[in-house]
């Protein structure tokens, strides 16, 4: 079975304006819309396209999170994933622990390709894909904007600070995806009905021999410092005047 594993994280929807809790212990997540991490959605879309090209037989969606994460996995199944695994935990999890769980699942499921988002938009850590590649001792490519699979290899284009970089990696490999890789499909109603019948296994963190808990102690969470409101100039002459006064032009 030619299998692709995709990581799916439940995060605060990207349209939500995030607010810090008054007691500075975190951000407010109660009653807030939750969604699949947008980068993970792109990873899933890519997996589905590779399968639709006839280059894979099965797409497995994996998530680690609270029981409500089943909603996001059902969405992933409705998009077209064949089955899903939820490693259920209410605990905060260290990126390395997440990578270790993915490693155990990869060893059991033997995917030829693992696709993850380049970062989650909640903690912005950007670590899991690279760590998983290290633990599996397999190739990695991060921030991919183009992925071609052929002859047991992936040719990938990465978005890097200096432009675009192309790598060739032997499969199996772990790739993290960037925004411009694709535009994820919309889920249709019949697919949501079909997704209810697809297998979704619920596991525990202990099933994989990993311990729960965050990597670091949270000391506090603060709102970002706000910028002072500036001035509005009426025309170019005034703009140039102000800039000259500040020594900026």
């Amino acid at each position: 079975m030619r299998r692709i594993m995709v990581g799916v994280k439940r995060v605060v929807d990207y349209n939500v304006r995030v607010r810090v809790k008054p007691d500075n212990t975190g951000v407010i997540t109660e009653g807030v819309k939750m969604s699949i991490n947008p980068f993970d959605e792109i990873a899933l879309e890519q997996a589905l396209r590779i399968k639709e090209q006839g280059l894979a037989d099965e797409v497995l969606a994996v998530s680690i999170g609270p029981s409500d994460t089943q909603q996001q996995l059902r969405t992933a199944l409705a998009m077209g994933a064949d089955r899903a695994i939820l490693v259920q935990t209410d605990a905060a999890m260290a990126p390395l622990s997440l990578a270790r769980i993915f490693q155990k699942i990869a060893e059991a499921e033997q995917p030829f390709l693992t696709l993850l988002g380049k970062q989650a938009i909640d903690d912005d850590n950007g670590q899991t894909a690279q760590m998983l590649a290290a633990l599996l001792d397999r190739p990695q490519a991060t921030s991919c904007s183009k992925i071609d699979i052929a002859d047991g290899k992936a040719t990938v284009t990465r978005e890097v600070d200096s432009g675009l970089e192309t790598l060739e990696v032997d499969l199996p490999a772990v790739l993290s995806v960037d925004l411009r890789l694709n535009e994820p499909r919309y889920v249709k109603l019949p697919d949501i009905m079909k997704a209810k019948k697809k297998p979704l296994d619920v596991k525990s963190v202990a099933d994989y021999g990993v311990t729960e808990g965050a990597a670091f102690r949270t000391v506090k969470v603060d709102p970002p410092p706000s910028r002072q409101k500036g001035i509005i100039v009426k025309d170019v002459a005034e703009l140039v005047g102000v800039l000259k006064q500040k020594g900026l032009v």
Binding site: N125, Q127, L132, Q140
Partner: peptide, 20 residues
């Protein structure tokens, strides 16, 4: 993009999570 790519792989080899 250089450090974001490499450092988590270093962290995993050293058995720790990264402060990003």
């Amino acid at each position: 993009t250089f450090g974001k790519d490499i450092m988590p792989r270093v962290a995993a080899l050293l058995g720790v999570s990264q402060v990003s």
